[in-house]
């Protein structure tokens, strides 16, 4: 990486990817601060190996986030057990996962809760697909699953979300989805 010319490159890449990576990392971390630590480590490693920020390697970045987050989670779990045994407790944190517009805060909370209640493997696929913008093949690469498995999980996740959100249709103000663009 050219240290001067590459500086703007990584910043632009990081600004785009960081919120998505942070959301993904929070699935396995107990706090937003831990998730930021994970994203920091994963991005630095990824950028060193991939100085141009080649988008074809983005699935590997998500894979790195998951690996580091799981490692951190294991050590955090061990630490929590030790601290619980010694009358100290981990501070709980409830930082929001999303930045909702003020007027839609209730709807955002409802959606966030529905996503968080999904089984972890379904939530992972939804996160990568909806907010990560990855294709099924890229999600398969990031998670180590087959494309068919990924597609099935996404389908199950949408069904679950549909079932949970349907009673709140009025609150959510569910507008018809925009018509798909036909080339």
């Amino acid at each position: 990486m050219n240290s001067t010319a590459g500086n703007e490159d990584w910043q632009a890449c990081f600004q785009e990817l960081a919120p998505k990576l942070l959301l993904y990392a929070r699935q396995w971390t107990t706090s937003a601060a831990d998730a930021e630590d994970v994203v920091q480590m994963a991005f630095v490693r990824w950028w060193q190996r991939n100085p141009g920020g080649d988008r074809a390697h983005v699935p590997l970045l998500y894979a790195a986030v998951k690996t580091i987050a799981l490692d951190l989670h294991k050590s955090a779990t061990r630490r929590a057990k030790r601290e619980a045994a010694s009358d100290f407790a981990l501070p709980s944190e409830d930082a929001p996962y999303f930045d909702p517009p003020v007027e839609d805060r209730e709807s955002a909370r409802l959606l966030e809760r529905a996503v968080l209640d999904l089984p972890p493997e379904q939530r992972e696929v939804v996160t990568l697909r909806i907010w990560g913008g990855l294709t099924y093949a890229e999600i398969a690469q990031a998670t180590g699953e087959t494309t068919n498995t990924v597609a099935s999980r996404y389908r199950y996740a949408l069904n679950n979300l549909h079932r949970v959100l349907e009673p709140h249709r009025e609150d959510l103000g569910a507008a018809p989805a925009p018509a798909p663009v036909v080339a």
Binding site: Q15, L22, Y97, D99, L158, A174
Partner: peptide
């Protein structure tokens, strides 16, 4: 509400931005 509606609702959520400190840490 169909699948497209659900996806549309989900996409209306924007993932929370990282702290400004995180960018500085990565730069360092």
């Amino acid at each position: 509400m169909n699948d497209a509606n659900v996806e549309h609702l989900l996409r209306s959520l924007r993932p929370a931005a990282p702290s400004a400190e995180l960018t500085q840490r990565v730069e360092r």
